[in-house]
Design a protein around this nucleic acid. Sequence first.
DNA 1: CATGAATGAGCGTTCATTCAT
DNA 2: TATGAATGAACGCTCATTCAT
Lengths: 216, 216, 216, 216
Amino acid sequence: MAREKLDTEVRQEQILEAALDVVSRKGMKGLNLGAVARRVGLVPSALYRHFDNKDGIIDALLGLIESRLLGNVAAVRHETKDPLLALELLLRRHVRLIRENAGIPRVVFSEEVYGANSQRKAQVYELLQKYLGHVAGFFGEAQQDGLVRTDLSPDELSVMFLGLVQPAAILWHVSDGGFDVTRQAEKAWRVFSEAIRNGECGTPETEEFALAVKEN
Amino acid sequence: MAREKLDTEVRQEQILEAALDVVSRKGMKGLNLGAVARRVGLVPSALYRHFDNKDGIIDALLGLIESRLLGNVAAVRHETKDPLLALELLLRRHVRLIRENAGIPRVVFSEEVYGANSQRKAQVYELLQKYLGHVAGFFGEAQQDGLVRTDLSPDELSVMFLGLVQPAAILWHVSDGGFDVTRQAEKAWRVFSEAIRNGECGTPETEEFALAVKEN
Amino acid sequence: MAREKLDTEVRQEQILEAALDVVSRKGMKGLNLGAVARRVGLVPSALYRHFDNKDGIIDALLGLIESRLLGNVAAVRHETKDPLLALELLLRRHVRLIRENAGIPRVVFSEEVYGANSQRKAQVYELLQKYLGHVAGFFGEAQQDGLVRTDLSPDELSVMFLGLVQPAAILWHVSDGGFDVTRQAEKAWRVFSEAIRNGECGTPETEEFALAVKEN
Amino acid sequence: MAREKLDTEVRQEQILEAALDVVSRKGMKGLNLGAVARRVGLVPSALYRHFDNKDGIIDALLGLIESRLLGNVAAVRHETKDPLLALELLLRRHVRLIRENAGIPRVVFSEEVYGANSQRKAQVYELLQKYLGHVAGFFGEAQQDGLVRTDLSPDELSVMFLGLVQPAAILWHVSDGGFDVTRQAEKAWRVFSEAIRNGECGTPETEEFALAVKEN
DNA sequence: CATGAATGAGCGTTCATTCAT
DNA sequence: TATGAATGAACGCTCATTCAT
């Protein structure tokens, strides 16, 4: 075989990338060490040089996913000061992320990652809480700025936000890419953002987002 | 053992019920023939009298789920003529259904049921399409009745409708029942229904639904 | 393959017999499910029909050994009322038992059967205690009958009794059968029984035993 | 890491010491190169600088054990001219040796060190023969000095000598140190030495040994 | 002399599936 | 119709060993 020797740091990244790739294609059920190793160009037992065991890989994979999700949050924070615009951009990034990494929702939502392993369940819960916390943060800012109605809590709003893409993403996946998740997310955001905007009613959609979505 | 001999039809129902139960508790990964058989009071190999193989059971399970989902649709159709009220009631029934049968989303959305099996992928897609089709039907009626704005297609609305519960359901599951999915769905519906209502702006929530949800 | 189907009771015996055989030839290190299954004419996974796992097999194997050892005790009890003669006969049976089942000491004394598994350590300890208890019982009777000196406790005597064969057995095994364990045991018993006999000194060996040993 | 570079000779000693230590704690099953290397502060592959392979280590380990056993023989030879006293002292040293290095009997008697490897079997046999030869030598001297009866050969006596400790040692180990091997050996020696002494009958125990054992 | 990545053989175990009864 | 023994494929994992650095 290749028997090329690489640093464990490099290998760890490769392995996680490969694992995410496998999940994207074959689902969590298809995530076995053989498939991962093959994709990296290694033999299964070689993975144990770089991770304790399969659970260790899944844990690290959740870490990778967390960093990607939170990376998007950090990115939009730097792109704009307007919290509502930030959420638009975050939504757009989110759609792109799961379009390019179909494995992400498959790992996070695939409910057999946990199962008996309630520690992982807690880990996933924490991941979601963290992400939703940031989203809620944007909503909170928007409310303080008087942009968003205050009869809904930031937490509630953040869960609704998640609902803007998730079903679309599932349809996109089940339809083998036939369903236009980007467009659906755009529409859903328009309706949602109108609904939560303060005072005015039926505000037209934000132009920046419409543009951004179209060029995707 | 019991060794009671029952009609295949009865057994099939028992088996599917058991399978759904297993998925509800242990996830798709825990869905093995041994667990299913044990719950029915049979031996694994006995299942082959009633189904071709495990895939056959999963296929039939999807059928069972479809009938449950469509049963809810039929039920609300008989409960009211008002399409928007019907959707409220459907949402409420949906929440109850997945609260009592956590296995339903785990089967439908858990993306490793299919994987390599693209035929099942199509089957799940069809199931969703059918359900969403009915939901879209209600929205279409509502639009024809002038109750709902027409700048959004019934199809788009139906996907948004799905988004009202799904993330909440996931949080409910991951948080081990700690998250209040019913309340979240209620809030989400209020916001959503306001947003899509024709003409008026900021309509207060429908009383019937608020009541219904509270007594749940 | 043969694919002959036998009752689990029969299989369990076959499996344990095979396991003991494997240990006799290859030691505990050579005791793997493949070797055992092959000897029974089965496939490794088939063993799981009849035992929970490998540990279950080893546990049951200890049970088998215990029954063999205690079977010898019961046998000599029926053969004579004289406790010292009983011990002679037991010694002779013991030698034969481990000559025909070299695996027995290998299982009981091979200290990696336990190791981390301290429950098994306790199990082996209990087995030894039980056997030694019976031996001590004989010594106790002999003391009450005034046949054996009483400045040594039955427990101490029983451990010494064990020492009459054990090193010989090891030499026999390591020498690939070259060492005459039977003769050594005979001599050791003569010396030992003289030494512990009450009052008289240098009693000549018991004739029955000398005969019994020779015809072996 | 330390990455200290030491002479092969030093390393070999360290490695064997570590190996014996591992066996003492975890048994032969726990003797893997990783555990040994860790204890030396090396990496498994580094062991191959100093030994051909794992078998080489075990072979050398037997050599170490041999030197320890024979070292005891040499020591008692210098401590006394009286062959019977020498044997007493040797017994006492033997007990101490295996109490402090539980791995020694685990290597020598644990019969899976060999298995298929019949060369090692021969090696162990030779080791035992050598040790027993020295013990037999003491008995021979004692017989020539008229101290020990001559109807038993020195070889036979030497094997019996081995039987004075071995079962006690096993019980000591299986009982997790609960069994008093020192006391048992003392008693066994008293009985045995009386029995083999020439002429007199029922000689009381040798005082030196009783003292020596008590202060242990 | 020492490291650490990689290999390959082997083991225990699970599970869908077959089949004779 | 139901049982239960048996199969075979697959998987996670361990460990002795090799080799380039």
